[in-house]
Design a protein around this nucleic acid. Structure first.
Length: 327
DNA sequence: CTTCTAACCTGGACTCACGG
DNA sequence: CCGTGAGTCCAGGTTAGAAG
């Protein structure tokens, strides 16, 4: 898995055809602590311009005005270009960053480098057109196959029952599996039959690039009646599967359908910010119950849901989780 | 931040092809 | 005829991104 700075290098190479060597910025330790807490700093040469890359450590967005203030504090120590690097920036913040003349890069997405005369935001447009990942239903099927390695081929209608989708959806799932090359679909008599030639572990490794996090959205909730019996998700599930300590707030995983029911029955109340006793709920793109065991979400989905985290403790627990996995 | 819009995902109705 | 399985087309509900 590439970290953000590496993605930055790759992105520049793909779009500008330049390779840059970025290094940790030595003078970083002279900065105030709160800045080092918020960002990692790197130095590089970009088209003969020395640049300082300021990488946001957290996924949380920092408002452009604040970023500008931070940059001003650094300018005493670095008199050249400063580039703000973040995994994602919302459209309105992007606009404000440009108003503030702050150079920024969102790897794989957009870059605004006025000093170098680069404004690559039309790049976003085509992005949605390129089909990058597989649909949730296909992911559910792949996971089903990984957990219940089938001895014989599977047909769309049979799989539809097993993963709770309609046969129509399975038609499309088969198409996706075929075009991505994850498996083989053959006509036997009048039926489409799905086969996998590789073993489980290779299928997992082959799929990894195409699989996405099952989490559509994370919400903070309070639970008035304290009567929830939901699947553990996120760090709560990870601590169930590993040695990791329980997180401060429990995390649960639900399907979109279940989430609606919870809201309708007023069993949970969504919060803007956490309050004492509140918890976190992950709303999933497919039903976590499909593969859950012992009251927690399944390890592979769990891995996918947390692999982009910055937390080293979590990363390590995830790695051992996969190592321990019985293929 | 709010509103608008294009894209996405899924399932239903329907059709077609096939074998009995 | 019928039943089965697959594909096409369409609509409803969502979502992410763009625009205001």
């Amino acid at each position: 898995m590439l970290n953000l700075a590496q993605k930055f290098e790759k992105y520049l190479f793909e779009n500008l055809g330049v390779s840059i060597a970025i290094e940790k910025w030595q003078k970083e330790k002279n900065l105030p602590l709160f800045l080092r807490d918020l960002y990692s700093f790197y130095e590089c040469q970009l088209l003969h311009e020395p640049c300082l890359v300021m990488e946001a450590r957290d996924e949380e967005e920092i408002t452009p005005a604040t970023v500008r203030k931070h940059i001003q504090q650094i300018e005493d120590m670095w008199r050249h270009e400063i580039i703000y690097l973040h995994p994602s920036i919302s459209s309105y913040n992007r606009k404000r960053l440009i108003e503030h003349k702050i150079s920024f890069v969102v790897p794989g997405n957009q870059m605004y480098l006025p000093l170098l005369g680069i404004d690559l935001r039309e790049h976003i447009k085509g992005k949605r057109l390129v089909k990058k990942k597989i649909s949730p239903s296909t992911q559910a099927v792949i996971l089903f196959v990984l957990y219940n390695w089938p001895r014989e081929g599977l047909t769309p209608s049979r799989l539809a029952e097993l993963v709770n989708y309609t046969p129509m959806t399975l038609t499309r799932v088969f198409d996706e599996i075929e075009t991505t090359g994850l498996g083989n679909v053959e006509m036997e008599w009048r039926e489409r039959v799905l086969h996998f030639e590789v073993d489980r572990k290779s299928l997992w490794e082959k799929s990894l690039d195409l699989l996405h996090s099952p989490v559509r959205k994370r919400v903070k909730v309070s639970v008035p009646h304290d009567t929830l019996s939901l699947l553990l998700g996120g760090e709560s599930a990870l601590s169930h599967h590993s040695m990791l300590a329980q997180p401060f707030r429990p995390t649960y995983a639900v399907s979109a359908r279940e989430w609606k029911v919870l809201q309708l029955n007023k069993e949970v109340a969504e919060l803007k910010i956490h309050e004492p006793g509140s918890m976190e709920i992950e709303i999933w793109k497919y039903d976590p119950e499909l593969f859950a065991r012992e009251g927690a979400v399944d390890p592979l989905s769990l891995y996918l849901s947390l692999k982009n985290t910055k937390d080293e403790r979590v990363d390590m627990a995830l790695d051992t989780l996969l190592e321990k996995f019985q293929w």
